[in-house]
Every structure is written in structure tokens, then in C-alpha cells.
């Protein structure tokens, strides 16, 4: 059984079917890609997995335990963390405080005797935010904000990490470093789910890719298979080649 298992998830907004029987697996040690055109339902799927919006049918399991009835808070405590496409940073706080809040919250529920201050500094170092650690997040460019969100979600030491377009707003060098970081995280045993429009990044770092179109999964496979899958090419990559 996969660490995160999404089975037959359907979500409707009024008459609009945003997700239609979606299945998705994410395994520890792997970066799982989720791609699809605008409006395909990627963010909606993350919202459903984290419990921010209810689903109409289907199930979501973490380590084999169903999570459908759990609040977002409880799901986070089971080891789920995410970033937001539409940034949800704490704008009244500095970069360091943003990460520190998360480390403190994690300590509050995990009671693992970790030192939130040390966790925070280590993450700032690892993600490369040292130079802006005391800046207010409002003053940062989007690319860096996304790194702060990544740091914040890592501070809860998740088992499953959902990233919603984390590389948008980053330049080429930043994206390269970011891809390497994702692979590192996976190598440490985390299950990473990556939603990203930067196809090169996805193909480079993902072990497995799901393609979502109009709320349905139209293909699953390794990057090689996905790139040559005719349905995907038609739906997502547009022109062949």
C-alpha cells in the first residue's frame, strides 16, 4: 500500500465536476508528479487531500488509515504537509518567524522534545534563506516566498509533502537547486507530490507522473512513458514533440 492513497475521489462545485474518480498513489522515497492543464483540478485535489474542502465520494488514506473524516489539523498531525499555489504565508511575520511558528506548532503536538529554534535555523540554512531570514515575507519576490512555504511545511517534518507549483517565480538556477533539494528530500524517505507547470523540472525529478485533465487521471507512468503517451501529448503538451 502506498503511503498516500487517493481512491475514486470526486468533487463537485455546483454542477461543475472538478475531480472525477481520481486515483493517486505517493510512495516514500519518491517524487510523484501531478501535471495537467490549467483548471484540471490539481489544486482542488490537494485541497481535498488536506481536508480544506470536502469530497463528494471516494477515499483518502495515509499509511492505510482512512482520513476522510479527519479535520485538516488532524491530517497534518498524521504527517501531511503542503504548500499553496496562491501563497498562504504569514505576512505579518518574518521569514524566520514563519518557519519558527510551524516548528513550534509541530513541537506542540508531536511532543518529541525537538528544539524549534534549532529546527528553524537548520531549515533556513538548508533552503538557503539565510540572507533574508529577518525580512518580512511581504518584501520578498514570489520565488523566495515559495521557498519559505517549503521551509514552513518541512518544519512539521511531514511524511507526505504536497507541493503546489513550488517553482513558479524561480529563475533557472533557483529551479536547479530546488530540484536537487526535492530529490534529497525523497532520498531521505519522504513521499513528495509535485504539481508543477515546468515540465522540464517534472521530468527531471519525478519518479512517476500522473496526468490530470478535466478532473480525470488520463495517464500514469514514468516520465519517459508520459512524454510519449499520445493522450497526454494531445491534452497537455499540445503539439507533439
Amino acid at each position: 500500500m502506498a503511503q498516500l492513497a487517493v481512491r475514486g475521489v470526486t468533487v463537485r462545485f455546483g454542477g461543475n465536476v472538478a475531480l472525477d474518480g481520481v486515483d493517486l498513489d505517493a510512495d516514500p522515497g519518491m517524487v510523484t508528479g501531478l501535471i495537467g492543464p490549467n483548471g484540471a483540478g490539481k489544486t482542488t485535489l490537494f485541497n481535498v487531500i488536506t481536508g480544506l474542502i470536502p469530497l463528494n465520494s471516494g477515499s483518502i488514506q495515509l499509511n492505510g488509515a482512512p482520513m476522510n473524516d479527519l479535520s485538516p489539523t488532524k491530517r497534518a498531525r498524521r504527517g501531511l504537509a503542503r504548500t499553496f499555489q496562491r501563497l498562504e504565508l504569514f505576512s505579518l511575520l518574518s521569514v524566520r518567524e514563519n518557519i519558527r511558528v510551524a516548528a513550534d506548532i509541530r513541537k506542540g503536538w508531536a511532543r518529541d522534545g525537538s528544539d524549534p529554534a534549532a529546527v528553524t535555523e537548520a531549515l533556513i540554512e538548508r533552503i538557503g534563506l539565510g540572507a533574508v531570514a529577518d525580512a518580512r515575507v511581504d518584501a520578498l519576490p514570489t520565488g523566495q516566498c515559495r521557498l519559505v512555504e517549503l521551509g514552513r511545511s518541512l518544519a512539521t517534518r511531514p511524511e507526505v509533502l504536497l507541493l503546489d507549483e513550488p517553482a513558479s517565480g524561480q529563475d533557472e538556477n533557483e529551479t536547479l537547486a530546488f530540484g536537487a533539494l526535492l530529490q534529497e528530500l525523497a532520498a531521505e524517505g519522504m513521499a513528495v507530490v509535485l504539481v508543477e507547470h515546468d515540465v522540464h523540472l517534472v521530468m527531471r525529478v519525478c519518479h512517476k507522473v500522473h496526468v490530470l485533465d478535466f478532473g480525470r487521471i488520463i495517464a500514469v507512468g514514468d516520465p519517459q512513458q508520459i512524454q510519449t503517451n499520445p493522450a497526454v501529448v494531445a491534452a497537455y503538451l499540445g503539439t507533439p514533440g
Binding site: T50, G51, L52, S71, P72, T73, R75, A76, R77, L80, A81, R82, F84, E88, L89, F90, S91, L92, L93, N98, V101, A102, I105, R106, G108, W109, R152, S153, A155, T156
Partner: peptide, 16 residues
Amino acid sequence: LAMKDSEAACATLGLN
């Protein structure tokens, strides 16, 4: 302050 800014984000961090 975090909660004032985004309850959704706080919940996904496991805040009660």
C-alpha cells in the same frame, strides 16, 4: 498573528 493571517495554513501545519 499566523492564525489571523491564514487559518487554512495554520490548520495544515497541525495547529489546533
